[in-house]
Amino acid sequence: MNNALAISTIVIKELSRRKDFYVLFIMTAIITLLMGSVNFFNLQGISKYLKEICLLLIWISSLAIALATTARQIPAERENRTIFPLLAKPVTRWEVVVGKFLGCWFACGLALGLFYLFFGALALTREGQFQLGGVFQAWWLHWSMLAIVVAMTLLGSVVFAAPSSNVTIVFLGVASILLLGRYLHKIAVSMTEPGQTLLSICYFAMPHLEFFDVRDTLIHEWSVPWWACGVASLYACCYTLFFLVATWVVFRRQALN
């Protein structure tokens, strides 16, 4: 764990020094502008609509950040040959995988925290109320979902040769789960065999990222029960672990040159 943490701090150092976090400031600026214009329009219902756009932007940019930072981690280590002095130390490849994961996931969590903080703060100034619990839940669930995405991307980065193809494939996968995931079972039922079985297997095996999408509850100021948050975290934990172990299994015996 010591080694994995050391590796993760290097990941975060790199991200901060490569100025990747500038994207964040642009994003927060956009959110600020959007939320700031709520009063300007001063129309019934427009505030909910703007919140929705804000949250959609947060979702898209968080996925972009997670994919962009994770996909190049291991390929860049190999390309720049920095993996050689690293693995010449008493470091296992499992520790490298976990370290990379932790670094990227922490970085995503920070970025996400910033987004939600702005979102919450602006909701407060514009609407005069702030649901701390709701925003925190949304952040936590979103971050748990990103753990699965980061682990998936890590697996992709040791399977596919080019980071760009990895990003494309993982993005398509994540987007289709988010958009179609919940309907897949219904589609399956209406199909004939063997399509039905295949689609059902898909439905039960895939990580249901859409479970973590609580944008509607946040907009309508409903709330998610805390036990459901706990179950969702556990669910995310299982899939993350599965993808990390899969990454290690592929990476473990890979020749590095």
């Binding site: 010591n2 290097i10 490569r18 920095t82 002095p85 010449a88």
Partner: peptide, 27 residues
């Protein structure tokens, strides 16, 4: 073991002392 690879590349964004601190932690 101390190992010096053939073509030496290190994390470019770190300084010499930071990289050594990192490896020291691993050891």
């Amino acid at each position: 073991i101390g190992f010096l690879p053939e073509l030496t590349y290190y994390y470019k964004f770190l300084s010499a002392e930071e990289i050594l601190r990192f490896y020291a932690k691993i050891f």
